[in-house]
Simulated scan of single mutants.
Amino acid sequence: MSSLPAARPRPAATVNAEIRALMLRSGGRLAASDRARYVELLAEWARRSAIPSDLRRRIRPWTCPMT
């Protein structure tokens, strides 16, 4: 039985582009399913970026101030 090779982590810039695309598609108002995906992407981005671990714990999902 052969195992699949482990997937390489995506660069932070790639994850950031996906976050931006999600926000643009939604017009800034995320549906519940999009919000869940946004939180997943934000956590992935934080893991991939050069943010110190003590600041990573304080990152909160962005919400539009107009809502």
Rank of each mutant, 00 (worst) to 15 (best):
S33G: 11
S33V: 15
N16R: 14
L30R: 02
A50I: 02
W45T: 07
R35S: 11
A21G: 06
A17L: 06
G28S: 01
G28L: 02
A21R: 05
V15L: 10
A32P: 12
Y38P: 01
G28C: 03
L30Q: 09
V39D: 15
A17Y: 04
M23G: 04
M23R: 11
V15G: 03
S33W: 13
A46Q: 14
Y38I: 03
A46V: 14
L24P: 05
R25I: 05
S49L: 09
L41D: 02
M23I: 08
A17I: 04
V39P: 04
G28R: 02
Y38V: 01
S33M: 12
L22P: 05
E44G: 05
A46T: 10
L41Q: 03
D34L: 13
A50P: 02
V15H: 07
A17P: 05
R37E: 15
A21T: 06
A21N: 03
R37Q: 15
Y38H: 11
N16Y: 12
S26Q: 02
V15E: 07
V39C: 11
V15M: 00
R20H: 06
A21H: 04
R25C: 01
A43E: 13
W45L: 14
V15F: 04
L41F: 10
R25N: 03
R37C: 07
W45Q: 14
Y38W: 06
S33P: 09
E18Y: 01
A31Y: 10
A46E: 14
L30A: 11
R35D: 12
T14S: 13
I19K: 03
R35F: 11
V15S: 01
L41W: 09
R48D: 08
A31S: 15
G28Q: 01
A32Q: 14
A43K: 10
L41P: 05
T14M: 13
A46I: 10
R29S: 12
N16A: 14
A17H: 06
S49R: 06
S49A: 11
A43H: 12
D34F: 02
S33R: 15
A31N: 08
A21W: 04
S33I: 13
E40T: 13
L30F: 03
M23E: 01
L24F: 00
L22M: 00
E18V: 02
A32F: 05
L30P: 07
R47G: 13
S33E: 15
S26E: 03
L42Y: 01
